[in-house]
Amino acid sequence: MYAQMVETGTKRLKTLEEMSPEERDFQEKVDAETKIEAKNWMPDGYRKTLIRQISQHAHSEIVGMLPEGNWVTRAPTLKRKLQLMAKIQDEAGHGLYLYSAMETLGADRDEEIQKLHDGKAKYSSIFNYPTLNWADMGAVGWLVDGAAIVNQVVLQRTSYGPYSRAMVRICKEESFHQRQGYQILLDMMREGTQEQKDMVQDAINRLWWPALMMFGPHDDESPNSQQSMVWKIKRKSNDELRQMFIDQTIPQLEFLGCTVPDPDLKWNEERGHYDFGDINWKEFYDVLKGNGPCNRERIATRKKAIDDGAWVREAAVAYAAKQKQRADKAA
């Protein structure tokens, strides 16, 4: 999940009777699966939760370019380099679709980006892990984008129209990401040297648990989920999504001929799902608090990009003003 632990500001769910007439109208619309649009009345909490979730989602896409950017100049072939650049450009695009959707709620893009840079806004914990070898590009595409797809496919049905439409667009593009990632790994496993095969296993070993953490805490540790589910901002719980991801990923893992670093992982015939071991939640919360392996570097890189680009933005404004002046004079 690209948005983890989104605060809703609600301690307890209201019953329909406790709601104001406007709130009740709103909730009935949501219950009837009518999409909420920018100009419709909405509870303040709904608006704020959406701004938090969509901005967090957008920040994740933008910061998510960095671990991959690390490999653009080191890609093994021109073909792989072009694919990687196309994928990174998509991530930028996804961030921009989402910032646009967020702006329809009255949020200001610059302010939200400032919050990210000040450490007040979160982004997905996964992007605070380093990408140490080329196989990481495969594993990120397959596992990280794979986990994102599981979450985002469901979010296409989210109750807020602009968010839902951004998700539809994003989902179309994500499957390219996942397939190119898996193919990188498949090539290495089929045609690679022993050293290259070891690289694949090493990448999976390092990224498996962080990928599972992307879905956020267990449902009983996730107090905001309930409200988000009632508002249909979220459509499935963290644990449901995580299980879906594991169930669909393990057969792909076996096809690669690799393993995951979880001795407790096994098929449970009775449940019809894979059982899996305990997630290291201390690590998850540490990374979320800013103490992951790359948190400081990621934010510093984003800040530098914005600062270094300031002159370009200023020049664009100056150029536009000058062109307008000329056009006005000629008229």
Binding site: G93, S100, R109, R165, A166, A316, V317, A320, Q323, K324
Partner: peptide
């Protein structure tokens, strides 16, 4: 969807890219 731009021409270029 939408884009931000300094002028019309840039809006067109950004829309094309995005």
């Amino acid at each position: 969807g939408s884009v931000h731009a300094a002028d019309n021409e840039m809006a067109m270029e950004n829309a094309r890219e995005l």
